Amino acid sequence: MIWRRIRELWRGGEAAGDPDAIWLYVQCARCGAPVAVRADRRYDLNPDESGTGYILVKEIMDDRCFQLMRAEVRLDSGYRVVERAIEGGRFLSAEEYQRLRSAAERPQP
């Protein structure tokens, strides 16, 4: 019960529009677990080689099989995604992530 409440609070922070958050939604290629990762644009971004945008490199681990995934995301000066690549998984939309999480939380017959 307490873990459900913590998850709800965490998701509420996501939905509340944290201006410094960059959310990545990924799915593990090995076990299929969906993962949401928050990056902070104040601390997690590095200027790209051109000096006109940013690069985010994030190592992500799911909570099911613990496979390490590596995401690299390039953003423009307005923090919009320009290019992205991932090893060990695939990117999800926020809607796909929510659908997979909801399906995983349903009790199995």
Rank of each mutant, 00 (worst) to 15 (best):
P34K: 01
R90E: 15
S50W: 03
V37R: 06
L24G: 01
S50D: 13
E95G: 07
E96M: 03
V26A: 02
G51F: 06
G32R: 01
A29M: 05
Y97L: 05
L24R: 01
A33H: 02
D63P: 00
A36F: 02
A36E: 04
E72N: 08
R99E: 15
V26N: 00
F91Y: 04
C31N: 07
A33E: 10
P107V: 11
Q108K: 06
P47Q: 08
D63M: 05
A29E: 14
L68I: 14
Q27W: 01
R101V: 11
G51M: 09
D76A: 11
R30V: 15
E83R: 06
L45R: 06
A85C: 05
V35D: 04
G12N: 13
P34C: 04
L92E: 03
M69K: 03
R99N: 12
P34S: 04
R42D: 15
R80P: 01
I22N: 00
A29I: 05
L9H: 07
P109V: 14
R70Q: 12
W3L: 08
V26I: 08
E96N: 06
V26L: 06
Q67K: 00
A36Y: 00
Y97F: 13
Q108C: 03
Q67V: 10
G13L: 10
L92N: 07
D63Y: 01
A16F: 05
A39V: 07
G88P: 10
M61G: 12
V37Q: 12
V81F: 01
S102A: 15
V57S: 13
A103S: 06
A15G: 09
R4I: 14
D18H: 04
L100H: 00
Y43S: 13
V37P: 02
L100Q: 04
M61F: 06
C31V: 09
L45H: 09
R38M: 14
F66P: 00
Y43T: 14
R5I: 15
D20S: 12
V82P: 00
W23D: 15
Y25V: 03
G13K: 00
R80D: 07
L45A: 14
S77T: 07
R42W: 09
P19S: 09
G17Q: 07
L9A: 14
Y97C: 01
D48H: 05
F66M: 13
Q67C: 07
I2P: 05
P47W: 05
G53T: 07
D18L: 09
W10R: 11
R30C: 13
M1K: 05
A104G: 09
R41E: 15
